[in-house]
Amino acid sequence: MEQVGLFPVLAVSAALFLLGVIGVLTRRNILIVLMSVELMLNAVNLSFVAFARHHGTLDGHVFAVFVMAVAAAEAGVGLALVILLYRNRHKVDLDDLNLLKG
């Protein structure tokens, strides 16, 4: 079976990461921003796994599992915060986060 090389996988990973970054920076809906952050983390996982196969070591696979576990914990806390926000203001939009001015 023909194997996919390292660089096509890295290119997909970079594209996903970039999409995630753009999503975080431009979208105003909080849920979509959360999804974009998850997209960034999954792009990182792809890149770790690709490098792990390239090097023939297990470190990258293990790292990807750690990232998934942490992402799950983060999503839990993040969604809890979204619910708190919604109870407080009945809206989930980044533009409404304006009580504190930076």
Binding site: V37, L41, V70, E74, L81, N88, L97, L100
Partner: peptide
């Protein structure tokens, strides 16, 4: 409301920063 807003801003910024840090780690590993 201010505390929740602060927690949420910290969360988004922190998660974003972690993503960037991790992407860097994957390149260094590569």
């Amino acid at each position: 409301a201010r505390g929740i807003e602060s927690g949420f801003k910290y969360f988004i910024m922190g998660a974003f920063a972690s993503g960037i840090l991790l992407y860097g780690v994957s390149f260094v590993y590569g």
